[in-house]
Nucleic acid binder design. Sequence first.
DNA 1: TTCACTTCGAGAAAGCATTCACAAGCTCGG
DNA 2: CCGAGCTTGTGAATGCTTTCTCGAAGTGAA
Lengths: 224, 224
Amino acid sequence: MGHNGRRRIPEATVARLPLYYRSLIDCNERDLATVSSDQLAELAGVNAAKVRKDLSYLGSYGTRGVGYDVEYLLHEISRELGLTQDWPCVIVGAGNLGAALANYRGFGARGFRIVGLVDDASDKVGQTVGELTVEPMHTLANMVNERSISIGIIATPASAAQPVADALISAGIRSVLNFAPAVISVPPNVSVRKVDLATELQILSFYQLRGLTSGPALVVDRPA
Amino acid sequence: MGHNGRRRIPEATVARLPLYYRSLIDCNERDLATVSSDQLAELAGVNAAKVRKDLSYLGSYGTRGVGYDVEYLLHEISRELGLTQDWPCVIVGAGNLGAALANYRGFGARGFRIVGLVDDASDKVGQTVGELTVEPMHTLANMVNERSISIGIIATPASAAQPVADALISAGIRSVLNFAPAVISVPPNVSVRKVDLATELQILSFYQLRGLTSGPALVVDRPA
DNA sequence: TTCACTTCGAGAAAGCATTCACAAGCTCGG
DNA sequence: CCGAGCTTGTGAATGCTTTCTCGAAGTGAA
Ligand SMILES: NC(=O)c1ccc[n+]([C@@H]2O[C@H](COP(=O)([O-])OP(=O)(O)OC[C@H]3O[C@@H](n4cnc5c(N)ncnc54)[C@H](O)[C@@H]3O)[C@@H](O)[C@H]2O)c1
Ligand SMILES: NC(=O)c1ccc[n+]([C@@H]2O[C@H](COP(=O)([O-])OP(=O)(O)OC[C@H]3O[C@@H](n4cnc5c(N)ncnc54)[C@H](O)[C@@H]3O)[C@@H](O)[C@H]2O)c1
């Protein structure tokens, strides 16, 4: 029945686990005890074969003829994603976006807590944003160390992104989420993910221009 | 010299065009007249063969032994991405994130202008955010029509995402950018892209947990 | 003109990801 | 306990993306 042992999980699958996780939370809130790959696929907006293949990389957690136990699968995915532990984060750049992120109570919900907000502008330092006080850049290294920060979020202008990334990395951070529209280079033991608004809009305009649609237009129905 | 004629551009390539676009803007600002695939690859953080293959889908715009003419390539990519025209956008949801986006002067720069901001909370309606005034939801359909809005940006809570998407679509919008952590279903002639913070953080924690790094760790060097 | 050198374009190979299709395994009613 | 009916898990097939490789085409010096 397939070796349940250690198995490399493909990147594409990893990127979908959070989606399944969210879908399962939904199921749980609706008091569903089990869910089939078909239902889960519908909720996650992907196809059922993909759900089954993805979940099979984690192990054989389903029951044939029944589906997946919601609570159990939720637990397993949480464990794979590391959501059973805390991931303190620091935001660099207390501007528009940095402030919105710091105010955002909603991913604090799942272990990702913003425990530091730093900025290099002297007029920002000392300001209060939500429950945080903006601290100066030179405190970064100590802060990362003392508060066991593992994730750094870059919300500065693009021109500052590389130096800020360098500062985060030399403070010991190994995971970076970059909101600035700039490519940053990092040593091979550091992960970077980016969130790029302009890119997304440009992809939309590309397809709109041609009367085509992006993505695997599997998401359908709804009367409209 | 390859047939320069109409050729389907792969999705993966489309998603990188904005990256090349940004890199070429850089080159232009540094007054480089031409750029080689190697240089462009370095700037975009991808590998050179990929740059050449990607650009070859647009046509044969390079010169052997020389590279690509920066201005010319910039123009061609702009044209492909539809950046030579205006893309008026509306934001739905004037909360933390909606306000940060509305205030953001930086993608207005490239044809994407926010021309409307709507919210269904009566205490938000009438408020001023940047240069915009928050308008009520029921004005959406007229607004989309009168201001020729082509892109809808969802910045409401997840629970409102589907009804908001439905409203946007029935107002005539065919391109949606969704910031809410929810899967939305749309008819097949509508494009949706999503920006999901929680997903990105979860991917980072997955890899950090294992001492691995995400992505094609091609980005290197830098003393640190 | 010729030669050494550079760089693109694109076929072909290799590597991933998605989808198909079905045997295996489970439940439940009778 | 059996058989009908579901649903998983996974090899195999398909399709997409990336990478390799190298001929073709350009430059500039002599
Ligand atoms: N505002 C948005 O909605 C939005 C949307 C998408 C992307 N972005 C991107 O996010 C980034 C931030 O945008 P914003 O609107 O918040 O900008 P902003 O100008 O409001 O804020 C940037 C902040 O970074 C600080 N900063 C600058 N250099 C720094 C450095 N070297 N070290 C530490 N702090 C530094 C500034 O003092 C400022 O407080 C930009 O790169 C922008 O392109 C913003
Ligand atoms: N704030 C952030 O930094 C951040 C980051 C990532 C993702 N998000 C996501 O973005 C979305 C917005 O976040 P936020 O922090 O701005 O929330 P928010 O609560 O500050 O704002 C939401 C706004 O949407 C409005 N709204 C609610 N239902 C509506 C409806 N049916 N029609 C029109 N407007 C409606 C509300 O009145 C409110 O003004 C959420 O889905 C959140 O998960 C936010």
